[in-house]
């Protein structure tokens, strides 16, 4: 066992796993943002009639969502 006293030490000692972890973090951040973007677009901005009609009142009840 070796004692590590900083995150940088962790990086030096475990370069490959940490890089994988960082890549995973980036991927998760991207996934969250893409999902949020798609959900927001679909619910609040899509012109698809079924979605538009379903969320019509919601859109009109929000200050910043154009409906027509």
């Amino acid at each position: 066992m070796s004692r590590v006293t900083s995150r940088a030490d962790v990086g030096r000692l475990t370069a490959t796993p940490l890089a994988q972890l960082q890549a995973s973090v980036n991927a998760q951040v991207a996934l969250v943002l893409i999902t949020a973007a798609l959900v927001l677009w679909a619910i609040l901005f899509s012109n698809y009639p079924l979605v538009h009609d379903t969320f019509h009142e919601l859109r009109h009840s929000l200050y910043f969502v154009p409906c027509h």
């Binding site: 999902t35 798609l38 677009w41 679909a42 012109n47 698809y48």
Partner: peptide
């Protein structure tokens, strides 16, 4: 969420 909304999000 992606699957549920993605199919409708880009439709016009």
């Amino acid at each position: 969420a992606f699957w549920l909304t993605g199919s409708t999000a880009l439709a016009h």
